[in-house]
């Protein structure tokens, strides 16, 4: 029993999409590291990388070559297997997430009359899938921290475990808010529900939309371990946190996972709150460029925040999570629900 031609075509198209997404994701950190260092430089009133290529544009390539040729050190008393495995564990879920992320509305290809969709899979539980899969990246951090057999790494791992558990609650609450506002768990339908002009976006679902967005941004930044919430790699008190013992390619896998997670949170914010690929005004720009533009704005925002705010203390971090974000979320769920019923 052989599958018919349509099924084979479907599988091929899917494999091609997976390939394209993977290639884009694995190369995305190259421009992003350059941008991050430039942002850092300009905020601190210096030019940033300037030497390699025009305006230092080839700096990430030089960094990559350096990382490849560094000696790969495994600490003497480390748990060898887990130590090797941890960077992979942190990278794979970060990449997996993009299976469910749609980037533009589907188009019908002329002449052959086939529909081409801009996602690998549209689950009817897409938003849950992304949160669940993204949450798994934490194992890389915990296991890496433990396997290094170092006190600093261990403390960094434990810190981020507690931090991510706490902020995952707030992040999931903001997703609940979006699901209530858009009436669906599928990301494609969530974006479609925000079609129209600027005020149909979830962020302008007044009065709760903007508050949900702020909760999402704070919890998202904590979830991806970025300043002001990067307590797991606090160089002041923990050397470099969970990856203090990592070097060469293993280290760069962790960095890759971190950048991928940042892109994930930015795309999620775009899809859930900023109308996805819907433009604020119809001026003939293809939808996918709206999507990329909005995602880029969010990424840029994360970078500016990183070099603007100081790091929180650990107890402050926990207080913000449990005593501020979660109670506000609970009240907001109630308000959003009432609005859905009575408006």
């Amino acid at each position: 029993m052989w599958p018919d031609i349509d099924t084979i075509l479907l599988v091929i198209v899917m494999l091609v999409k997976v390939g394209v997404v993977t290639i884009i994701l694995l190369n995305l950190p190259i421009p992003l590291t350059w941008l991050e260092r430039k942002v850092a430089g300009h905020i601190q009133q210096r030019p940033g990388p300037m030497r390699v290529g025009p305006h230092g544009i080839l700096q990430p390539v030089a960094d990559g070559i350096k990382l490849i040729f560094k000696e790969d050190i495994v600490p003497a008393k480390a748990d060898k297997l887990l130590f090797m495995f941890a960077p992979v564990v942190s990278l794979v879920p970060a990449l997996c997430v993009f299976v469910a992320i749609p980037v533009a509305e589907s188009v019908t290809i002329p002449y052959i009359n086939k529909e081409l969709t801009f996602y690998v899979a549209d689950f009817n539980v897409g938003i849950l899938f992304i949160l669940a899969r993204g949450g798994m990246g934490i194992y890389g951090i915990i296991l890496g921290g433990w396997a290094s057999n170092s006190k600093y790494a261990m403390l960094g791992g434990l810190r981020s475990a507690a931090q991510m558990i706490s902020y995952e609650v707030a992040l999931s609450f903001s997703a609940i808010g979006v699901v209530m506002m858009s009436n669906s768990l599928s990301l494609v339908e969530i974006v479609e529900s925000q079609a129209g002009n600027l005020f149909d976006w979830n962020i302008f679902y007044l009065p709760v939309g903007p508050i949900w967005f702020v909760i999402f941004l704070i919890a998202g930044m904590a979830e991806i371990n970025r300043i002001p919430f990067d307590l797991s790699e606090d160089e002041g008190s923990l050397a470099a946190g969970f990856f203090v013992e990592y070097s060469a390619m293993k280290f760069s896998l962790f960095a890759l996972a971190e950048y991928t997670a940042m892109v994930t949170i930015a795309t999620l914010g775009t899809l859930m709150f900023l109308g996805g690929w819907n433009g604020p005004v119809d001026i003939g720009i293809p939808p996918i460029f709206w999507f990329i533009g909005k995602t880029f704005v969010l990424i840029y925002f994360f970078m500016v925040i990183r070099f603007t705010l100081p790091r929180y203390r650990y107890d402050q971090l926990m207080t913000i999570g449990w005593n501020v974000l979660i109670p506000i979320s609970l009240v907001l769920v109630l308000v959003t629900g009432l609005m859905r019923i009575y408006l």
């Binding site: 689950f123 539980v125 669940a132 934490i138 915990i142 261990m154 475990a161 995952e168």
Partner: peptide, 26 residues
């Protein structure tokens, strides 16, 4: 049942086992 599958990952893998590891690590 993708919903059950995702919830399984979300709750058991994403939350319960993290706490589990938290204790085991100590």
């Amino acid at each position: 049942s993708p919903f059950l599958a995702v919830v399984q990952v979300f709750i058991y893998v994403g939350a319960v086992l993290v706490l589990f590891l938290f204790v085991v690590l100590l």
